[in-house]
């Protein structure tokens, strides 16, 4: 069985509030992700999708329910789960290659293996020639490519992407979506993408999980069966988009009624 299976079982998360009942940000989340698949989480602001990603990453163990990777409950961050944040979060004092290498500090590999991996990844994300550049010398799109390379460096089974393209201009975003798709196919790593952009989710994913807000919960899971060449202007694409938007829209309708 290939590695990279993720099971989120009945996960709830709430924050205590002074003098008021605790604020529930995630309520009974159940999501299964097959090894090597691409799943997107979409939903309105405040639906807890980024919080859920933090829990999967292992940065916050204070929640109910279970998060299993390949059948084993997670305990804290691990190199088998990579992350790409919305802000590229490259360290400004490290060159591009050393930023990517930072992921490998505790990988237990030889220096030669590390150097080779970094070199391969820089080629994979199309940044050859910029190995010694500092982050301030890179454009937003290039920095985000570097962040993707860093996320992949330790050969994780699961790569978590927290709106990685959200801060980029529209054209760069489209290009990087194709890049991400290519990387996903090359690396065969499970990817979980949090995004606001429904088109992006449909273009990239095997399945889209639509979440609702207050409290954050799963509203619908839409399987995307559009094959490998996806036409953003095609009628099938539009049909999926309509379905997802309806799931998100119905959510708003209910809230207005309530």
């Amino acid at each position: 069985m290939p590695a990279g299976r993720l099971d989120i079982r009945d996960v709830s998360k709430s924050y205590p509030q002074e003098g008021r009942p605790p604020l529930t940000v995630l309520s009974h989340i159940d999501i299964d992700v097959a090894p090597g698949s691409f799943v997107s989480l979409v939903g309105p602001s405040g639906c807890g999708k980024s919080t859920l990603l933090r829990l999967i990453l292992g940065l916050d163990a204070d929640h109910d329910g279970e998060i299993l990777v390949d059948g084993t409950p997670i305990s804290g961050p691990a190199l088998s789960r990579g992350i790409v944040f919305q802000d590229h979060r490259l360290l400004p004092w490290l060159t591009l290659e050393r930023n990517i290498g930072l992921s490998l500090e505790n990988a237990g590999w030889s220096a030669a293996e590390k150097a080779e991996t970094v070199r391969d990844l820089i080629a994979l994300v199309g940044l050859r020639g910029f190995e010694r550049a500092f982050p301030h010398q890179l454009s937003g799109g290039m920095a985000q490519r570097a962040a993707i390379a860093r996320g992949l460096a330790a050969r994780p089974e699961i790569l978590l992407l927290d709106e990685p393209l959200g801060a980029l201009d529209a054209l760069t975003r489209l290009r990087l979506q194709s890049e991400l798709q290519r990387i996903w196919r090359t690396e065969r790593v499970t990817m979980i993408l949090v995004t606001h952009d429904v088109d992006e989710a449909i273009f990239l994913s095997d399945a889209v999980v639509v979440m609702g807000a207050r409290p954050g919960r799963v509203v619908e899971r839409v399987t995307i069966d559009l094959g490998t060449e996806r036409d953003r202007a095609g009628s099938d694409f539009a049909a999926h988009k309509r379905r997802i938007l309806r799931a998100m829209g119905a959510e708003f309708g209910n809230r207005h009624a309530a």
């Binding site: 199309g126 910029f130 301030h136 799109g141 290039m142 290009r175 890049e179 290519r182």
Partner: peptide
């Protein structure tokens, strides 16, 4: 797909004019 990679990588907005 690979030529999009080249365009963006080749553009090098900041690094190229650095000199």
């Amino acid at each position: 797909m690979s030529d999009t990679a080249n365009t963006i990588a080749g553009a090098g907005f900041a690094a190229a004019p650095a000199r």
